[in-house]
Design a binder for these strands. Sequence first.
DNA 1: ACATTAAGTGATT
DNA 2: AATCACTTAATGT
Length: 211
Amino acid sequence: MYPEQFKLLFEPELLKEIEDIARIQEVRANDIILNIGQTVKSMPIIISGSLRVTRISEEGKEILLYYVYANESCAMTFTCCMEQQASEIRAIAEEDSILLNIPVSVMDKWIVKYPTWKNFVMSTMRFRFNELLRTIDQIAFQKLDERLIHYLKEKSKVSGSTVLNVSHEQVALDLATSRVVISRLLKKMENDEQILLYRTQIKLLNKFFEF
DNA sequence: ACATTAAGTGATT
DNA sequence: AATCACTTAATGT
């Protein structure tokens, strides 16, 4: 039912409660799990696969905030599901994934009842907060080429592959910039022999990963 | 063969 | 770094 790692994380009574209450949800790549404005009625923990969490500007531009990997949860859900607030973010399945949904109703109780649950919640929050700070740094201070490198590395980590099947257009959307700019930056990197470019495919070479 | 979509590029702001 | 305008290349029907 739940992944093996949970047994080390949570006490037996909590595991039993999880088994009783949580329900499994399977999603396909690119399914929207949570959209902006929706209220959160359950907290998803990723069992396998990964999610991308994005934010949309008034003009409809979507910018990538961070990825959520297996055994992690989305910190935003904690903050808004406690108060039944509308979501500020959008969560999309990056690949086919399996989620474990914990209903909001039990979360409060568990925090009081189970120290290990409180720890889990707190550490995901801390982890996410730090990651968000890094994202802010990137957007505020880093140049686009550095953001692009970071993006490609992250993509490669998600897919576990050095071949990324993504169009320049999609990269541009994720980084909230224009396709032309991305094409030019990627071309530079190709000339630098860091990557190889094909149609809707980017191959990362060894040189790319050097330092 | 033709239409559509992805990518490359020069010029301008 | 963004936008425009245009070209070339790859892919789908």
